[in-house]
Design a protein around this nucleic acid. Structure first.
Length: 458
RNA sequence: GCGGCUAUAGUUCAGUGGCAGAACGCCGCUCUGUGGCAGCGGAUGUCGUGGGUUCGACCCCCACUAGCCGCCCCA
């Protein structure tokens, strides 16, 4: 190592592909979104559940579906070898979604035994080995919720579907997301789907050769996906295909109608989209997706979900119908940031001030007193930064103005008189305030926390 | 996993086979108890990484890595 020139240059360590750091300029918005979700979900009777970040691979194979893209090619899976006689070797997987884990926990802890409807929400990272893109990361965050319980708890009621959708509409509104669109469909029961798949295959057979390359392949592998095709030339042909609405049972039909009726009563706008299909095998009956216009490229779906009436049984549990959703938090935040930029462009951006006051000692001799004052004000609940007496006053002002709403000058005059010079940046006003009244005056008037203002400050 | 575009200062981006650039930001001074403005001055780069072609490569070629766009899929 003495010959440093010969030492091979090691590549700098970087966050791995598809992962990213959320720096301090980002985390306030993330916390705001999460706090809003927690507050709102609580009003609907949801409680938080935290499940492990990795599970037995089999959970996802059985729950999400062996044939889905997620399971067949996007999971981070590894062999975990036994390290003690008490351990057994097994295949583990970083969770690609959270519903399977929640239902596993529901079964494992016999939550059905209470007889009650369970309303559970989670916030956490998920992992899929996809090619990264804007709004698509290998570690991404989901905020999700599940309503699950024995049929006697009302878990099958269309009211639960509507309640979840209505809550989501409220969530997006409360965050100030503009231009969201709710698309709704029913994929029927699992039996309905088998019949529909056959009908679809039969109808595709004669027109296959007229469709795009992708659809020709889909017609074989996953006929439902043909409905998602965006190639303009294919649309007339796709319109001739049987609609899932004509293949779902009377029960499923009535369920969907009841969901729609409840949404209308709540005045939540929705669009029936008979082509909306979901990629996870466990979905039955109601499926939905919320899309937005701002901030995202191809990934314009910010949340999706649906019913999974048979999932619990698939995982070896009791009959426990349920409905849930997952919000792509990364995408939601990209949307809010894009909107915020639009707004800032339209109205001129306001500087961000996170602190209540900046204390500026005028000479190094005032430093100890400044720290003591900061300690006192912080104890009173104020957000305070302390400068340094070696700074020129001009510099103190510039730093203070970029961070705080007030600057408190602390020099010989102040030390002698006990009257502190306080300047408020917004108004330019400057006053002398006795130490006893300082905390109160820096706290300022409690302005009403208007939604837009909250977001602006983030 | 497939196809395409991109990678130069802290940031946004120009640039040319022959000395590395602008704007903004940053630092200093004008200006040592009152900032935001203005003027002047200053610092900052393995030109993504590795190889090749060439007298000479930031520029041309190849590979790799990463980001972005589209596809696939999904949140």
């Amino acid at each position: 190592m003495t010959d440093s020139k010969k030492a091979p240059a090691r590549p700098p360590l970087k966050a791995v592909r598809g992962t990213r750091d959320l720096l301090p300029d980002q985390t306030p918005l993330w916390n705001h979104v999460e706090a809003t979700a927690r507050r709102l979900f609580a009003r609907y009777g949801f409680s938080e559940i935290r499940t492990p970040i990795f599970e037995a691979t089999d959970l996802f194979a059985r729950g999400v579906g062996q044939e889905t893209d997620i399971v067949s090619k996007e999971m981070f899976t590894w062999e975990d070898r036994a390290r003690a006689a008490s351990e057994k070797a097994q295949t583990l997987t970083l969770r690609p979604e959270n519903t399977a884990g929640v239902v596993r926990a529901y079964i494992e802890h016999q939550m059905a035994n209470s007889g009650a409807l369970q309303k559970l929400y989670y916030i956490g990272p998920q992992f899929r080995r996809e090619r990264p893109q804007r709004g698509r990361y290998r570690q991404f965050w989901q905020i999700g919720a599940e309503v699950i319980g024995p049929p006697s708890s009302g878990s099958e009621s269309p009211l639960r579907d509507a309640e979840v959708l209505e809550m989501l509409a409220g969530f997006l509104d409360e965050l100030g997301v503009r231009g969201w669109r709710l698309e709704l469909n029913s994929v029927g029961s699992s039996q309905d789907r088998v019949g529909y798949n056959e009908a679809l295959r039969a109808a595709l057979q004669p027109i296959r050769s007229r469709l795009c390359e992708d659809c020709q392949r889909r017609a074989e592998t996953n006929p439902l996906r043909v409905l998602d095709c965006k190639v303009p030339e294919d649309q007339p042909w796709i319109d001739t295909l049987p609609r899932i609405a004509d293949h779902i049972s009377a029960d499923s039909r009535a369920h969907l109608d009841a969901v729609c009726a409840a949404l209308e009563a709540c005045k939540v706008p929705y669009h029936l989209n008979p082509r909306l299909v979901r990629g996870l095998d466990y979905y039955t009956r109601t499926t939905f997706e919320f899309t937005v216009t701002a901030g995202l490229g191809a990934q314009n779906a910010i949340l999706g979900g649906g019913r999974y009436d048979g999932l619990s049984e698939m995982l070896g549990g009791p009959r426990a119908p349920g409905i849930g959703f997952a919000i792509g938090e990364d995408r939601l935040i990209l949307t809010l940031q894009a909107q915020h930029e639009e707004d800032a462009k339209a109205s001129g951006a306001a500087p961000v001030r996170l602190l209540d006051a900046y204390i500026a000692p005028l000479t190094p001799a005032q430093n100890p007193a400044a720290l003591a004052l900061a300690r006192e004000l912080r104890a009173a609940g104020l957000r305070i930064e302390v400068g340094d007496g070696s700074f020129k006053l001009r510099k103190s002002f510039e730093i203070a103005d970029s961070l705080a709403r007030h600057i408190v000058l602390l020099g010989e005059d102040e030390a002698g008189s006990g009257m502190y010079t306080v300047k408020t940046f917004a108004s330019g006003e400057q006053t002398k305030i006795p130490r006893a009244k300082l905390a109160e005056s820096l706290r300022g008037s409690l302005e009403p926390r208007r939604k837009l203002r909250t977001i602006e400050r983030l």
